[in-house]
Design a binder for these strands. Structure first.
Lengths: 192, 192, 192, 192
DNA sequence: TATGAATGAGAATTCATTCAT
DNA sequence: TATGAATGAATTCTCATTCAT
């Protein structure tokens, strides 16, 4: 009767919630299986091991993020407008999925080389979205010619990450999206 | 006669190295004791448990950072110059202690409430250094009147964190301090 | 098809044997798991920790003892006969389970306040069996009017404990139940 | 200036207090050294290891008990009077040294064969005091001819142990020596 | 596929004992 | 003798993973 959500998705969602709230190392397989309402063993029918769950979260969610973000700026011409849309989209995704925000921001910074290798490609695409816009802005003369593109990207992601982090840890009392315009303006000026 | 480094410092330094490279959860007590060249049990003569090691690193290092950073800008009047000095100091500390950088940046974001409570005060002082400069800049008219101070702080730390993170993960091939002036300029413009 | 003894019982029995022979502190979890022929971890599927094993032994065994002892004297009217039956039952249980005897008698006296709190209720019921008989005897005039009931109970349990202890430590060469009648007579006279 | 108590005695007394209150296994060498106000290492100048402390307590205290108990009944002729004196002496010693009472009663029941071997001789002398009185009573016709001497000794020690145990665990609210006469009478009748 | 009991390697921590001072 | 920092073997408990049902 019910349209059944595939077990894979149920588990993945449960994992995001649990890992987002407890962190990867404190999240037990049992916590995830409880949250997903399946048996421990069932998880191993869909994921090869615990790390694979984390990698899969990155893979699927970053891919999804990149696709949706690209769609958002599809057809937009104005660089600053693209910037604003991306900022808004980023903060929207994160504010709607604080657990996912936690997973992406914290676990992505694991010093484990191994883990980073495994998501490098998806991370690259994730970075590309904003790098393309920055590049575009430079070409169009909206941003200064000698803008250091990596520095700009680091400022963009670093700032947004920090804003989201503060918001997540502060208990999410205020609206994460209240500052879209101000941030847009700050980036615009910084890049000029 | 022997120049003896106190065991406490030896262990703390070993812990910074190991935790910085492997992350808190992957760093085993045995790894730290091996690195420090002491027995496992010796660690427990100086720290009450594993978490205490991490908290102590934060406490001592943030305290030290704040003190030294304050000294650096002591007597400087020009806001932009203070900003430049802080950026340089930050990148200098981090580039000289990449392991410490990892510990501070990554482990500080552990979602463990307990942990965050324990470093909150030191973190507050850490934030205060830059917030004071920003405030000062606003008063002096160097930065715009309605600059959102938290947003500015988040941009400052977020950006520097991301720059350091990228540098750490990339294998530290390039000079972390090459971009002090460019970053200073970007912040100056963003805050205006 | 297989006559399967539940793991819980297997572990409990193994624990009684090992703890009875070595004492609680000298009995290692590995000893118990070896004796039970299960993995260490399996024990923790049935008991929350080592102390819980000990408390559970007390709970189950004292409960069982009290129930069976009550049944034994069910319907008996003569006080001295009830006394004799209880003594015989006590010595029978202990002689058939010397390890259990050890656990109950020795470990029950651990000075750990915590432990004593946890078995207090069961211990109370255990004491009640004989106290009821003594009370009954007083009312019926079989024992003297001013018999100090706690003193009588202490003599009863103290004596039986010591008899069993000596028997256990001596290597159980002689028959523990050889002296049922003599003990009955001694108590009867002492209580008069 | 102060007449110095030998360190050996200080440590032994501290050990009795700590072991009596916490039990042998929960009593740490550090607890004992703290209580004795000496360094850990100092203890090993007087005792070869932790077990040796316990054995020494038994040896010295049981020896002392036996000597004093013998003195108490020296020259007394009446068997029942000797019995009363011994009971009074036992309860007096225990009520004045509840920690010692704990050590003797609880730790003596360790199922460790090893430990019991090491105090067997002293325990034998301890038992002999009352056994001699019982024997004497039989010869004199004060106790019945066919009294089973071991059973009588077990009743004597078992009862007194239980009385003391109850008193120790109950928090020592009441007077341990209130029941000397009643106990004497009960034993006298039981042995007849 | 789904289950969850069983597994056992692995980790943090304790503490009796040693020994250089 | 006295000290107490250092040691490291030993122990309890955890939890990712397996596999018979």
């Amino acid at each position: 009767m019910e349209d059944k959500i595939p077990k894979f998705d149920v588990i993945l969602q449960a994992a995001i919630k649990v890992i987002g709230q407890k962190g990867y190392h404190n999240a037990k397989i049992k916590d995830i299986s409880n949250e997903a309402d399946v048996a421990d063993g069932t998880i191993y029918n869909y994921f090869s091991n615990k790390e694979d769950i984390l990698v899969t979260i990155f893979r699927i969610k970053l891919e999804d993020y990149v696709n949706k973000a690209q769609q958002e700026i599809e057809g937009i011409d104005d660089t600053v407008e693209k910037l604003r849309i991306l900022i808004r989209y980023h903060l929207k995704v994160m504010s709607e999925n604080p657990d996912l925000a936690n997973v992406l921001q914290i676990e992505l910074r694991q010093p484990s080389k191994d883990m980073r290798m495994k998501v490098r490609r998806h991370l690259k695409n994730y970075f590309n979205v904003i790098e393309n816009v920055i590049n575009d802005g430079i070409k169009k003369g909206v941003f200064k010619k000698d803008l250091h593109i990596y520095l700009a990207r680091e400022m963009y992601f670093g700032t947004l990450d920090e804003v989201v982090s503060t918001w997540v840890f502060s208990g999410q009392h205020w609206g994460l999206m209240d500052h879209v315009d101000e941030l847009t303006e700050m980036f615009f000026k910084a890049f000029n």
